[in-house]
């Protein structure tokens, strides 16, 4: 058990570089899957023929596939089709494809939880369907979506480590680079890296719980 890397600036720098890539990929993926997820979830909720069915098909297909497969696909298959994408972008796309399906379900669940009577009342008072959706339903639904959404994003952040399989230089991969050189650090590094993920994700979850309480109170 060699924990000496904790005092070595060079190794900590390598790990920090990895962490920054992890955070960068996670941040953009969260942003894009939030947007795509809201669109998908709303489409599915509205029951507009064809569009809502397409959204449902997309969601059901993607969320039943392993994320690792989508990451491989986004990297190797896109390349085979001649799409030139830097590895970071390809991972962001894969994470977005996957997470937006799950966010879509969360959004639909949130929308469904809004009392139907309110919608009828809003429509009766002269609001259009879109106005009702935008001003009445979404704001209420969003509040209920926060906890599952945050836990989804926590998953996303730790799942970026799957991109280790295509050598994205994120935290996990950089730890591997170090321990392939210093074998005695393998287990200590795995523990350390896990702790880093834990600290970030746990703080995120706690912050979301605080937010939830605030909104409820």
């Amino acid at each position: 058990m060699d924990f000496s890397f904790l005092t070595r600036a060079d190794i900590m720098k390598t790990l920090l570089d990895g962490l920054l890539v992890t955070l960068e990929v996670a941040l953009f993926s969260i942003l894009f899957s939030f947007i795509c997820g809201i669109v998908l979830g709303t489409l599915r909720y509205t029951k507009i023929p064809v569009l809502s069915h397409l959204a449902a098909l997309y969601i059901e297909t993607v969320r039943n596939l392993p994320l690792l497969l989508i990451i491989f696909f986004g990297f190797f298959a896109f390349k085979e089709w001649g799409w030139e994408l830097p590895i970071t972008i390809s991972v962001i796309i894969s994470m977005t494809i996957f997470t937006s399906a799950l966010v879509g379900e969360i959004v639909r669940g949130g929308l469904n939880s809004v009392d139907k009577g309110q919608i009828e009342a809003a429509r009766a008072s002269g609001l259009t369907y879109v106005q009702t959706l935008w001003h009445i339903v979404l704001p209420q639904a969003l509040r209920r979506m926060i906890p599952p959404m945050v836990s989804q994003f926590v998953s996303l952040l730790k799942d970026t480590s799957l991109a280790v399989a295509i050598s994205l230089p994120e935290l996990m991969h950089n730890a591997q680079i170090v321990y392939s050189r210093y074998y005695n650090m393998t287990v200590p590094l795995l523990i350390f890296v896990s702790l880093v993920y834990f600290v970030i994700n746990y703080s995120l979850s706690q912050a979301s719980r605080q937010l939830e309480k605030k909104l409820a109170g």
Partner: peptide, 16 residues
Amino acid sequence: KEVNSKTRIKLLNGGD
């Protein structure tokens, strides 16, 4: 740019 046995040809032909 880092490549491995699995990625290198794809990265070359992809123009990376």
